[in-house]
Nucleic acid binder design. Structure first.
Lengths: 196, 196
DNA sequence: CGCGACGTTGATTTGCCTCAACGATTGTGG
DNA sequence: CCACAATCGTTGAGGCAAATCAACGTCGCG
């Protein structure tokens, strides 16, 4: 029951690995502990890793011209995160990736990822499926943003990230669903009155 | 200069094919002409094809509980479109795909796509890159929806789909950027006053 | 202890929606 | 080929959801 357990189970949901292949895979990983508020990637830098969260939580977000954060994604334990644009193109991106609490992660560098593809080709399939699932989730979020009210988007958020609803500062959730912290607070107190 | 020209050039932007491989590829395609307003996919059906637009234009959209359309994507010539969720999972999806004008398309069935992977493995790479690019574009759109005003989103639309700005009914554009047709009309006349 | 980050609440404003009425265009069946 | 319907775009009046601005209480942490 090693600390690789979570990430190996994550992979096993999509592809089956032999013990040898598991060893090759974990050999490419770099373990890293991250302090609260520490950056893993800053706007304007080139993203050189995919990051898998073991425990804690990260967020990926941009900052607009007025200084407001807009959260693209959270990464609680068992999730992957990266600036996909920057990682694919190996060019500077606009995303910040940062811990919302003290965390422990594994990082797979772009270089190691390509070595991994050569040594264990079925990882091509793994990351392809990951990308496909992510695309589907993002399409759903666009449709939600177009068709749902803030309350409904919050309800969806609670379903999608049940573990985060109470673990995260409210302003982070507000930013994710696309409202101001003030409005989010009012909305929440309104919800508590009707359904305790 | 055959009618396969456009789709072969589209593929060539990402992978290089030998004449033999080109022949295999086009052998898997089904040509189809589509009348204006004709459906290529209806909500609740399983999506069994990727569709490439040669000329004309398609749209992918959902209908909400109040009967309003929300457009997830347009597919002008040289673009691919499908209900990714339904295509990947081979389960019923919520997307409608429909022509916004008389169109000509090529369709690659999921079955043929898998045969193609076997016979020309580099197509794995092609569709992976397509998915990656699509993911990046969708992430950008989410961030735009979170941080930009309707006017700014319209400006982005004009940059992204210059050929569609004048070819498409205004209500379709309004639906894509997430405002009502009435508001879109007012916004547009406001813009025309300041910048003729 | 005191300072910053967070959450709450209220007053006011605004971006966008709703509803309704009205031309202009398109297209379609008789 | 025309009449009529359907679709589309425009405009105006009024309404609502959410933003903005500001004040204040609370907590955790250095």
């Amino acid at each position: 029951m090693s600390h690789f357990d979570l990430i190996l189970k994550n992979v096993a949901r999509i592809i089956h690995l032999s013990p040898d292949e598991e060893r090759v895979f974990v050999g490419f990983l770099e373990e890293k502990s991250v302090k609260n508020r520490q950056f893993l990637l800053e706007e304007g830098k080139v993203c050189r890793h995919s990051t898998f969260v073991c425990h804690g939580c990260l967020k990926g977000y941009t900052v607009d011209k007025n200084g407001f954060e807009h959260i693209l994604s959270f990464a609680p334990p068992d999730w992957w995160i990266a600036d996909m644009f920057s990682l694919f193109a190996q060019r500077p991106g606009q995303l910040n990736i940062r811990a919302t609490e003290a965390s422990m992660v594994f990082q797979l560098s772009k270089t190691n990822q390509e070595l991994l593809y050569q040594q264990v080709p079925k990882f091509e399939r793994f990351f392809r499926v990951l990308t496909e699932n992510s695309l589907v989730a993002h399409q759903q979020r666009i449709l939600d943003n177009l068709s749902l009210t803030a309350e409904e988007r919050y309800a969806h958020f609670c379903q999608k990230y049940p573990s985060l609803v109470h673990a995260l500062p409210q302003k982070e959730i507000a930013s994710y669903i696309g409202v101001t912290p003030e409005f989010f607070s009012k909305m929440r107190s309104r919800l508590l009155k009707t359904s305790p």
